[in-house]
Amino acid sequence: MNLAVAEHGFLSPTGAEIAFVLIGLVVLGSALLVVTTRQVVHAALWLVVTLGGLAAEYLLLTAEFIAWVQVLIYVGAVVVLLLFGLMLTKAPIGYSEPPDSAARIPAAVVALGATATLLTVIVDAFRTAYLHLGDDTVGSTEVTGQSLFKVWVLPFEVLSVLLLAALIGAIVLSRSRSRAHSGRKD
């Protein structure tokens, strides 16, 4: 096993690796567009591409249940929610954010700094680590479901309560304008 690990090199990538890198490039490109495009609705659509690409990456990592959940919740629910939000805040289709170069430069500096630091640390730590895939039972729905309801059942239930609270909170916050208004004035 160790010998096998040592033999894996970066110059002879496997097919899964090639696919992972290609999809990763798509993900990163669309993510960049999400944070840079002037048009708000476009950003939401590029977010769909990013999240979908990530779902594909999960599949490549043999976490199939996560991948489907990703597609269902993120692409199906969250993005739709965000689009609703954009529409409710009356963002026009062609709305373009005003250029704000004064904020971009420090943002870029901080982001690049963080990225560089993390990259240095992680590459230094996991240069030779190899991920053995192929045991496709690990990420299957059955395995995940069993561990979730055997080991993680208590956090799961707590989380359901959290979701309920968030649901109620969201309803209360967005329900009545006058109620919220008077409440704010107290």
Partner: peptide, 13 residues
Amino acid sequence: LTGLFAGVVVLAV
């Protein structure tokens, strides 16, 4: 936020 993240980066470095 900029200050916060910059501080975190500096501390991490």
